[in-house]
Design a protein around this nucleic acid. Structure first.
Length: 899
RNA sequence: GGGCUGUUAGCUCAGUUGGUUCAGAGCGUUGCAUUCACACUGCAAAGGUCACUGGUUCGAAUCCAGUACAGCCCACCA
């Protein structure tokens, strides 16, 4: 058959992906086989593929393809997350660009826009995953706002409410002034920031010139001060307690109080108390019945209550108020000060502590089984070091704020009485039910009023995205909405989860919690936590830094196979991957040595195929002795490789597995095996030998397929005539082809390879050109290995003859592999002095070596406490060393005679 | 502040219960070769006191303690 001279990755990848999909190879339905299941960490529905996705989806695809080829019913469930705050922010921005303000829309109108956006752009990321080669069962594509999924989320909310895990409470929350919503603690990212500490003096009421000085990083909140607090043990300020201070600029009198919370050492020892804008101040306020003055609007501008700067942004005001305080003589000093500031994970806005009424999940009880499961390895974290982090979080787990002041998401199924809308929020009655009708019935029963649907208003808030994604491993199989269904029973619990450590708490821990609460079982057996991807400078890749290459650009340059190999080449579980793209990420400058290595690997396989397919096959011929040796060895080598791979996969050492198969193909198969099988110019290869080559090639392709699915399919399809509907991806990896005494055969061949290497080095050193044939003299205790494998040495070394001797012939240089010594005639090239020097050095080394073993062996404690096998090995080493020394000395003596 | 990880060649990393001559791979560098599948190649070379200091042990890159540096997680003092 004819084949193109060069391989076109883009074309081939497109072709085979379509072929796989068309033939339904990704599809999984329950059958009699054992299932192997992965649920994808659902990317944001409006997201774009980034390097992190690239890494963990490549790993998932490798795992799923491998298991498929091991005979499991492999099911990879894809899907997307509605990502409430991220998506809503995106839609709001888009509408703003079109001149539409969110505030001008009704909830339904807004949701209509959001769904349009989702339908148009949502799922682009899933198409991008196809480019990677991801073998997801696309018919199972799920979305966390699918109807059934929405229903499941509501059911869970109501259920947890009934069980008493969910409650509503007025509390200090993390407020995102850009997203205009509350956030959970996990959604707040603390970053160290250089700020300033302002020392501001307040006049003590009723005094002529007595002042009290406080230190603050947030002078704009001075307008909301309702007390100044000192430590009750602080002698300096005893006399002030009970007096009042005057808030600068607005001249409000506030009490000076004493509270243990105040750190005597910090700042001036006096703390301004602003209960509305600081968690600790809020607690102090509660203890002392202080007034709470909220000087900020939800969007971070000053409120009416501030009296000054109303409507202006908090950071603008910070600058202004400092100026004004300075002008009024209230600033004592300003110091540079480093502190860490909470930022919104999604919008990056600086978080504002804000008092508000929210819904919470009490996590204490519900999370207990999830802690146990990880500690006793029912759920395995890989690498295990994350167990500590996990335990720490779980043991100190805080209640989870699940309500969000957004529209995009599952609306909280709590209903209020329209008649109570005039009451403060936290005083209203509410009724929780899966349906409005149910809520109405509850409201009627409770109030005794004849209410109609019109009389109830649903809570406007939606639920945290993670409150839906924690159901992912079972609701993708509709376990909650179709309880007891066969699919859920078959696929749950899933097997492996592959994700980044950054969402260990957000998502992984909560899935384990929900898994136990709703399925009574762990959601997955293994969690493979990938590293973060860093740029060449070691910085985390992120959108804001703009230091992440577009994976699709990389695929364009190196092909999906190349990028898959590149991204995995140095990516241990849990270890960060420093990706080598340069800082300038314009496509032209984009280059990656790692991906280049990947595409070279593909090229190598392609060329191996080109070589093999152009051989003339002779039906009559026989297998040559050299080929026979090669085949025997290679079969054993491939079997050993297959076993090693299985072990690596078992332990999730994916990068190691790749390196193993990479070496087997590049060095052993291409470098040694094919060189030995290759017929001479103008000659043909026997059909029998050819069949062995094809078999082994095919086997290696199967083993490497999970890593490089496209090139392996292309080659597998070309190696033999295939029927339509056949594919490498649905073949089964066979049992080892050779069992038994592999070890000896392999080590014998290693000796040959070492010999070849050593002789080559010798030639290079002595300047013996490759075209010059050499006579090789061998001094060995195992001549049979060399006799039996003479063809190998002939092929690689250009031997004119080989003979066994027991000492160095005249005029030869020597080299040694283990305990075998080789002599090669040097003719006029011989440099006796250099030879002697080399031998002396070698002797000195071996003397030291033997001496060190002697020391060990004469140590009574070693002989008595080391395992017998180890002692035996040492004895053998010593014997070998002594034999070597004997050889070297004889050779040296031989040289001496010639002088 | 509390906790957890690291530190091995110029770079990125392996080193799988402490025991073969264990100090490795890839990239990069240098030299040589060849155009006979593959220059997206082959062959070879150079390079590391395994962060430092102590300890345990017959034996330590590997186990323990301390130090230095780096990173991550949690908490957070205005």
């Amino acid at each position: 058959m004819s084949i193109a001279k060069t391989y076109n990755p883009a074309e081939s990848e497109e072709k085979w992906y379509q072929y796989w999909e068309k033939n339904g190879f990704f599809r999984s339905v329950p059958d009699e086989r054992e299932p192997y299941t992965i649920v994808i960490p659902p990317p944001n529905v409006t997201g774009m593929l980034h390097m992190g996705h690239m890494l963990n989806n490549t790993i998932q695809d490798i795992l799923i393809r491998r298991k498929r080829m091991e005979g499991y019913n492999a099911c990879w469930v894809p899907g997307t997350d509605h990502a409430s705050i991220a998506t809503e922010a995106k839609v709001v921005r888009l509408l703003r660009d079109q001149g539409i303000k969110k505030s001008d829309l009704t909830r339904d109108e807004f949701l209509k826009h959001a769904f349009e956006w989702k339908d148009k752009y949502g799922g682009i990321i899933l198409d991008q995953l196809r480019k990677l080669g991801a073998s997801c069962d696309w018919e199972r594509t799920r979305f966390t706002m699918d109807d059934d999924y929405y229903k499941a989320v509501i059911m869970v909310f109501c259920d947890l409410y009934e069980k008493g895990y969910i409650y509503r409470e007025l509390r200090m929350v993390n407020w995102d002034p850009a997203g205009l919503t509350a956030l959970s603690d996990e959604e707040v990212i603390y970053k160290d920031q250089q700020g300033r500490l302002f020392f501001v003096k307040y006049k003590v009421e009723g005094t002529k010139n007595e002042w009290v000085t406080i230190a603050t990083t947030r002078p704009e909140t001075i307008l909301g001060d309702t007390a100044i607090s000192v430590n009750p043990k602080d002698m300096r300020f005893m006399h002030l307690i009970g007096k009042k201070a005057i808030v600068p600029l607005i001249n409000r009198a506030i009490p000076i109080i004493a509270d243990d919370y105040v750190d005597i050492e910090f700042g001036t020892g006096c703390l301004k108390v602003t209960p509305a804008h600081d968690v600790n101040d809020y607690e102090i306020g509660k203890r002392h019945n202080l007034e709470t003055i909220d000087v900020l609007n939800p969007n971070g501008t000053m409120s009416e209550a501030a009296q000054l700067y109303v409507g202006e942004d908090r950071f603008v005001v910070r600058k202004k108020i400092v100026k004004d305080l300075e002008a009024a003589g209230h600033i004592v000093k300003i110091e540079d000060y480093k502190n860490s500031i909470g930022h919104s994970e999604r919008t990056d806005a600086i978080i504002e502590p804000r008092l508000s009424l929210q819904w919470w999940v009490n996590m204490k009880e519900i999370s207990k089984p999830a802690l146990t499961a990880v500690m006793d390895d029912t759920v395995n974290l890989i690498p295990a070091k994350f167990k500590n982090t996990y335990r720490h979080w779980m043991e100190n787990v805080k209640d989870w704020c699940i309500s969000r002041q957004l529209w995009w998401g599952q609306q909280i199924p709590a209903y209020y009485l329209r008649s109570e809308t005039a009451l403060p929020e936290h005083e209203r009655q509410f009724f929780v039910d899966v349906t409005p009708e149910g809520a109405l019935a509850k409201a009627r029963a409770k109030t005794g009023l004849d209410l109609s649907a019109e009389d109830l208003l649903q809570d406007a808030d939606v639920l945290d995205t993670w409150f839906s994604s924690w159901l992912w491993p079972f609701q993708v199989f509709k376990s909650l909405t179709e309880p007891g269904n066969a699919e859920a029973a078959y696929y749950y619990p899933t097997n492996d989860l592959v994700t980044g450590p950054d969402i260990l708490f957000f998502w992984v821990a909560r899935m384990v919690i929900a898994g136990y609460e709703y399925e009574g079982k762990e959601p997955f057996k293994n969690v493979y936590l990938t590293g973060l991807i860093r740029d060449a400078l070691g910085r985390k890749m992120s959108k804001s830094l703009g230091n992440s290459p577009d994976p699709l650009d990389l695929i364009g340059l190196y092909g999906a196979d190349g990028v898959r190999v590149g991204v995995l080449m140095s990516s241990p579980a849990g270890g960060d991957l420093t990706f080598d793209t340069p800082i300038d990420l314009t496509l032209k400058a984009l280059e990656s040595k790692l991906c280049e290595q990947g595409s070279k690997f593909r090229h190598k396989m392609w060329n191996a195929y080109l070589l093999v397919q152009r051989w003339q096959v002779d039906e009559e011929g026989t297998i040559t002795p050299l080929q026979k040796i090669a085949i025997n060895w290679m079969k054993r080598y491939v079997s050993a490789t297959a076993a090693e791979l299985a072990d690596h996969f078992e332990k999730f050492r994916i990068s190691e597995a790749l390196r193993t198969i990479y070496r087997a193909i590049w060095d052993e198969f291409c470098g040694w095996f094919l060189e030995m099988m290759k017929p001479a110019q103008e000659e043909s290869i026997s059909a029998a030998a050819y069949a062995e080559v094809i078999n082994l090639f095919e086997l290696l392709l199967q083993l490497v397929h999970p890593f490089t699915p496209f090139i392996t399919e292309e080659l597998w399809q070309s190696l033999r005539e295939r029927q339509p509907g056949e594919s490498i991806m649905i073949t089964q990896i066979p049992e080892p082809i050779v069992v038994g005494d592999d070890f000896e055969a392999l080590t014998a061949f290693e000796l040959l390879k070492d010999t070849v290497t050593a002789v080559r080095a010798f030639r290079a050193e002595k300047g013996i050109r490759n075209i010059e044939q050499i006579d090789l003299f061998v001094n060995t205790q195992t001549p049979e290995i060399f006799t039996a494998n003479l063809p190998v040495l002939e092929r690689f070394l250009g031997l004119s003859s080989m003979q066994f001797v027991d000492k160095a012939p005249a005029g030869t240089g020597s080299l040694r592999v283990l305990t075998t010594e080789f002599y090669i005639p040097l003719g006029d090239n011989i440099d006796i002095e250099a030879e002697k020097a080399k031998l002396l050095k070698d002797i000195a080394y071996n003397e030291g070596f033997v001496a060190s073993i002697d020391k060990k062996l004469s140590n009574e404690k070693f002989v008595s406490s080391a395992p017998a096998a180890v002692v035996e090995i040492e004895r053998k080493k010593k014997a070998d060393g002594e034999a070597t020394l004997k050889l070297l000395r004889e050779t040296l003596a031989g040289l001496g005679e010639k002088i």
